[in-house]
Design a protein around this nucleic acid. Structure first.
Length: 275
DNA sequence: AGGATGACCAGGACGC
DNA sequence: TGCGTCCTGGTCATCC
């Protein structure tokens, strides 16, 4: 499931391969993928454009084009964006968009569950589009700090797990890393945000930065579909402490890990280590 | 208005 | 084997 570390890994692996390249043609096999819902207009704008860079905001990938347009890609649960060099193999049934790059190579979007989205937005309007404008701060950004987290937590009254998943609170954290961060911080997922002590906020801040940074170093978590921009799996799944380990022993205290439904999502936690 | 809940997307896993 | 059911998670609509 692509969360911040996975999307950042895709960005890092793709950027050197596609920056400066001209998109010679685009095929969209799944029309509902692109917004606005007009494949012809999408093609007209994208074809002939040069990719000037690839950036990330939260879980969104931003393909910056030279024509004052940006392609905003959300991989959702099972989306994959990969660069295929040379003479690539034919696409499979789950590949919904292919961009041919001038010279050689293709940028492919594959998504078995078809939940992903590809939005074409004028670059000048990027920061004001609803999906980007609503995002909270980047947890690994320079502007983020323990003090800022403290203020944000005090301003809300919500279970901490659900707040970490809220993209308007902080951008980029999904179910896997929310559970891993709370385990590392020793905080129960059901704790209400404005009841955390200064020490707990300190631990939470360090856990957020630590878990996300280490997951990027490990090139993401590959449990089901996730692969990076070169089609390679990550390795952070080997480091998971609680996610997907229900019924197994806590690696810290040895007692049995539990799960609980929280706002429709499964929270994995250690009943002894997390207060 | 903020918080909580449920629906939705589609396919894979699993049980009978 | 085939069918039904449940689970997955990010997002959005709806209700309180």
């Amino acid at each position: 499931m692509p969360e911040l570390p996975e999307v950042e890994t895709v960005r890092r692996t793709l950027e050197p391969k596609i920056t400066g390249r001209r998109i010679s043609s685009v095929q969209v096999m799944l029309p509902k993928l692109v917004r606005p819902l007009d494949v012809n207009a999408f093609q007209d704008t994208v074809e002939g454009s040069i990719i000037e860079g690839l950036s990330r905001r939260g879980k969104y990938l931003l393909v910056d084009l030279d024509k004052d347009f940006t392609i905003v890609i959300n991989l959702r649960m099972t989306g994959q964006l990969t660069f295929c060099p040379g003479n690539p193999e034919p696409v499979d049934a789950h590949t919904h968009m292919v961009m041919d790059l001038e010279g050689e190579g293709q940028l492919r979007f594959r998504d078995p569950r078809k939940f992903g989205t590809v939005h074409l937005v004028p670059t000048s309007e990027l920061e004001s589009t609803s999906e980007i404008a609503a995002l909270g701060p980047e947890p690994l950004g320079l502007g983020f700090s323990e003090q800022k987290l403290w203020k944000l937590l005090l301003s809300r009254k919500k279970k901490i797990k659900q707040l970490l998943l809220d993209q308007t609170f902080v951008a980029g954290i999904g179910n896997i890393y929310a559970d891993e961060i709370l385990f590392r911080a020793g905080i129960s997922p059901v704790r209400v945000s404005n009841t955390l002590s200064p020490e707990e906020v300190h631990d939470l801040y360090l856990a957020m930065v630590g878990v996300l940074s280490e997951a990027i170093i490990q090139r993401g978590t590959s449990i089901r579909d996730y692969v990076d921009g070169e089609g390679k799996a990550g390795t952070y799944q080997n480091m998971l402490q609680v996610y997907g380990r229900k019924g197994q022993d806590c690696l810290q205290c040895g007692c049995m890990l539990e799960t609980q439904k929280l706002g429709g999502r499964t929270a994995h936690y250690c009943p002894k280590c997390q207060k």
